[in-house]
Simulated scan of single mutants.
Amino acid sequence: MTDLLEKNRVVRQNPGERNYHIFYAILAGTNNQQREAFGLTHPESYHYLRQSHCIADKTINDKDTFQDVLV
């Protein structure tokens, strides 16, 4: 049987589409000390996050999402 995930592998986002929302949440929700400890910078510095030209989504509060994950 052929694995469907192998045939439908996503290698980039469409314009205006974000991917791996947890990364946006981590970058928005961590404080300066945490970002420094983990070697994180702003979302625009990551090729995979910026290639769709959609860093922010007005319908998603990334900081709140990060806090929800911590709970």
Rank of each mutant, 00 (worst) to 15 (best):
M1N: 07
M1Q: 11
M1F: 08
M1I: 06
M1H: 06
T2F: 11
T2S: 13
T2Y: 06
T2G: 06
D3C: 12
D3V: 05
D3E: 12
D3Y: 10
L4K: 08
L5N: 12
L5D: 14
L5Q: 08
E6V: 06
E6R: 05
E6W: 04
E6H: 09
K7Q: 13
K7H: 13
K7W: 01
K7R: 12
N8I: 03
R9N: 08
R9G: 05
R9V: 11
V10I: 15
V10H: 08
V11P: 00
Q13C: 12
N14E: 11
P15F: 04
G16L: 09
E17R: 07
E17S: 09
N19P: 02
Y20W: 07
H21Y: 06
H21N: 11
I22S: 08
I22H: 10
I22K: 05
I22W: 12
Y24P: 03
A25K: 00
I26G: 02
L27S: 04
G29M: 03
G29I: 00
T30Q: 08
T30G: 06
N31G: 13
N31Y: 01
N32G: 05
N32W: 09
N32I: 05
N32P: 07
Q33G: 05
Q33W: 08
Q33T: 08
Q33M: 11
Q33C: 04
Q34T: 01
Q34D: 07
R35L: 00
R35H: 07
E36G: 00
E36A: 12
E36D: 05
E36W: 03
A37P: 01
F38K: 04
F38A: 09
F38L: 14
F38T: 01
G39K: 03
G39E: 09
G39H: 05
G39Y: 01
G39R: 02
L40K: 00
L40T: 02
L40N: 03
L40F: 14
T41A: 12
H42T: 13
E44W: 02
E44R: 10
S45P: 04
S45K: 07
Y46W: 07
L49Q: 05
R50F: 02
Q51M: 14
S52K: 03
H53Y: 10
C54D: 12
C54E: 12
I55V: 13
I55H: 04
I55Y: 04
I55N: 07
A56N: 13
A56E: 13
A56L: 07
D57K: 02
D57L: 14
D57N: 15
K58I: 10
T59G: 12
T59R: 15
I60F: 07
I60R: 01
I60S: 03
I60C: 06
N61H: 04
N61T: 02
D62V: 00
D62P: 00
D62L: 00
D62W: 07
K63T: 12
K63G: 08
K63Y: 13
D64Y: 06
T65F: 14
F66Y: 15
F66P: 04
F66M: 11
F66C: 07
Q67N: 10
Q67C: 08
D68T: 09
D68N: 14
V69P: 00
V69M: 15
L70T: 08
L70R: 07
L70K: 14
V71Q: 15
